[in-house]
Design a protein around this nucleic acid. Structure first.
Lengths: 121, 121
DNA sequence: CTGTATCCATGATGATACTG
DNA sequence: CAGTATCATCATGGATACAG
């Protein structure tokens, strides 16, 4: 079984971890942390390379977990805003911290990989 | 592959993040952080439910990234020890911090999910 | 504009069997 | 003991088309 992003994981902690560290989850959380409020199309364009399907799926999951608040204005054409909840802000800060640390160690990891690859093949 | 305007998550960074937050990556890092040194079989038994294939794969990835050091003693039967490098200890601490935070918010997330599911379907 | 529905290629995953 | 090899399966994510 794949340790799915959406359900079917025995350990709830593991599931939540998957949600916030998932490919698009990280980007959505950090984007909303930086911008405060973003529309669906702003998230889609800002993140880039994300399909609408995956963005919707990611937003639904984060909304269900209580990390993201969805505000749909009853207008035509539709206008939907997304913001972080307090819980979501906590999550976003933690995830950003991990992402920042990772970013800072990219050179060290790249060096380690080169060494490893050179020694083996 | 290009990422966001709001977020600067490069591909190598994303890959590293996936390595350390992967299902078995988290468990291996935390196990080694707690125990200091563990043999292959100790990791396999301690983590539980992990196939030898996935454990090997996880260990190789973490070793290549410079997070884990592998020490194979030239004896029969084979005896292989795994420990964290300094870089790996940093990673393990960050990951454990995120995992601990996640663990502490499981009730809040569960409540949010119940609310969401009740309101919708 | 903000989604939903459907199909499908890809790749991750784990069971099993085997090896040095 | 510590892996490696092979294979079946099944979720994941992307493309596409369409709807409200």
């Amino acid at each position: 079984m794949k340790y799915g992003t959406y359900v079917k994981v025995s350990c709830p902690e593991r599931a939540i971890l998957e949600h916030v560290t998932s490919r698009w989850g990280v980007l959505v959380l950090v984007a909303l942390l930086d911008a405060g409020t973003l529309r669906f199309s702003e998230l889609r364009d800002g993140i880039g390379d994300v399909s609408e399907k995956m963005l919707t799926q990611t937003l639904r999951t984060l909304e269900r977990d209580g990390f993201v608040r969805r505000h749909a204005r009853p207008v035509i054409p539709p206008h939907v805003d997304y913001t972080l909840t307090d819980l979501g802000r906590e999550a976003a800060l933690k995830v950003q911290a991990l992402a920042d640390w990772t970013s800072s160690r990219v050179p060290a990891v790249a060096a380690a990989q080169s060494t490893y690859d050179a020694a083996r093949g």
